[in-house]
Design a binder for these strands. Structure first.
Length: 429
RNA sequence: GUGAUCGUAGCUCAGGCGGUUAGAGCGCCAGGUUGUGGCCCUGGAGGUCGGGGGUUCAAGUCCCCUCGGUCACCCCA
């Protein structure tokens, strides 16, 4: 490249007309529009928090021993403070909730967000160093309907987008005591096999044994076949809630698969957890993941637990799934109502005024700004997919009439400048 | 962080075992039609062959380093 500056590894630009769907402005706009609409349908309000947070918030919230905190953070020092580019949004949102006493608002709080997150991993398909997440959080209730609601929300979104082939996996991790008992049982079971485990799993045996459950190493999976299941250790309240959630989502026709090995990699999850997967987007097939995180609030400064449930979904992965299922094509180009063609200095000024007037009437107006031939400008009108071309030359300025050309039929008509807006508005809607 | 693989025009790619001014298609610009798009024809612009170093009379081609892309492990959205 002649240009010596490039975007940083694992990041990418989003620009109009990009060949890759994940880099194409039009696809992003379309998707963001659908997400905003869906969230509004469900009564979720947008929340925006800073990209930068104190390192301590993330370390405490997400968990010191998680991979995200221990090796994937973009953190830096400045003055006496340590900052991070946020690797996820749930902890920041809970921080904002506590900081602004949002529990004082009436009723349960429902939020959604969309924005960039950062993790220092080696990039691959569906995984970038700067990536985008959108998600929803319901804070202030432990009612199973909240859990079922966020599931329904995601399911509806996939349906509206037309995405098929998704699998919903669900599990419950129980309360803290249940998990501790299970953890001991699992460690007890796995310790005799320690010699056969990978180094990573051996470390986890003492650090975070539940993480061993989703290993991909075949030998370890074989060992795990006879391991105790968390299902046998779940506390009664969790079990009842879990049954309610299953009943609720079944009652609205949402299929799911129970997976007792599903544990999420962030420390704040407890009770209900879930994950949406899709085929065909590479090894990183998790479209969205989430669960209940009642214990997050006290971890970052609240006096007591605050019941909450939410999920995070990857925007890039969603776009990859759309692309894979051929759902990106029709969102490729902007359609113009009119394209104004001006030849000559007098015409240029007139065209500027006409464009201004038409734009005030909410028409989509395109116009070239250089001094190019009529032929060239018509070609642009054609490429821009415009319904009409309005031709303004010396003749038109003198006659006080523009030539309006229907780009599909090729038919032309002379229209007084004063009647232009009305003429176009009538026929373009 | 580990590994594999790739890097030639804006894009997709050709360039046998090193050998003249590095090519094509698409796209872009202009003209063919002195004021008319799509199709067609003609022409043009655009490349220090990712970057640096080395071997050689000679490197896009061979060697080393480096920077990126892609994919997988790992992890997760």
């Amino acid at each position: 490249m002649k240009n010596s500056f490039q975007n940083i590894e694992g990041t990418f630009d989003i620009y109009p007309g990009a060949q890759r769907a994940t880099e194409c402005t039009e696809i992003w706009s379309y998707l963001e529009g659908i997400i905003d609409e869906m969230m509004a349908n469900y009564g979720y309000s947008e929340i925006r928090t800073p990209t930068l947070e104190h390192t301590g918030l993330i370390a405490r919230g997400v968990g010191q021993t998680t991979d995200i905190v221990s090796k994937e953070m973009f953190a830096f020092e400045r003055g006496n403070h340590s900052y991070v580019l946020r690797p996820e949004m749930t902890a920041p949102i809970m921080r904002a909730y506590l900081q602004h006493h949002l529990d004082q608002n009436p009723g349960v709080q429902r939020y959604y967000y969309i924005g960039p997150c950062f993790r220092a991993e080696r990039p691959q398909k569906g995984r970038y160093r700067q990536f985008h997440q959108f998600g929803a959080e319901v804070i202030g209730t432990d009612d199973p309907r909240a859990d079922a609601e966020v599931i329904a929300l995601m399911t509806d979104l996939y349906q509206v987008l037309g995405i098929g082939d998704t699998t919903l996996k669900i599990n419950t991790l129980g309360n803290a005591e249940a998990r501790a008992t299970y953890r001991d049982a699992l460690v007890g079971y796995l310790t005799p096999f320690a010699e056969q485990l990978t180094q990573i799993s051996r470390d986890r045996l003492s650090q975070n044994p539940l993480r061993i459950l989703d290993t991909k190493v075949e030998a370890e999976r074989v060992i795990l076949e006879n391991a105790p299941l968390i299902t046998e250790y779940i506390d009664e309240e969790s079990a009842i809630n879990y049954e309610s959630i299953k009943r609720l989502i079944s009652s609205v026709g949402i299929p799911f698969v129970e997976d007792p090995m599903l544990v999420r990699g962030l420390d704040y999850y407890s009770h209900f957890t879930f994950e949406f997967e899709v085929k065909g987007i590479g090894a990183q097939n998790a479209l969205a993941g989430g669960g209940r995180y009642d214990s997050l609030a006290p971890e970052i400064g609240a006096k007591a637990a605050i019941p909450a449930i939410g999920f995070a979904a990857g925007v890039e992965r969603l776009i990859l799934a759309m692309e894979n299922q051929d759902l990106c094509k029709e969102h490729g180009s902007v359609k113009y109502d009119v394209w104004i063609i001006a030849v000559g200095d007098m015409a240029h000024e007139k065209a500027f005024q006409v464009a201004s007037q038409m734009r005030k009437s909410h028409l989509r107006v395109g116009m070239e700004l250089g001094h190019r031939s009529m032929k060239a400008q018509l070609r642009l009108a054609n490429r821009a997919n415009s319904t009409f071309a309005i031709i303004i030359g010396d003749q038109e300025v003198k006659a006080d009439r523009a030539t309006v050309k229907d780009m599909e039929t090729g038919q032309e008509q002379e229209v007084f400048f004063s009647d232009l807006v009305e003429r176009i508005t009538k026929s373009s809607t």
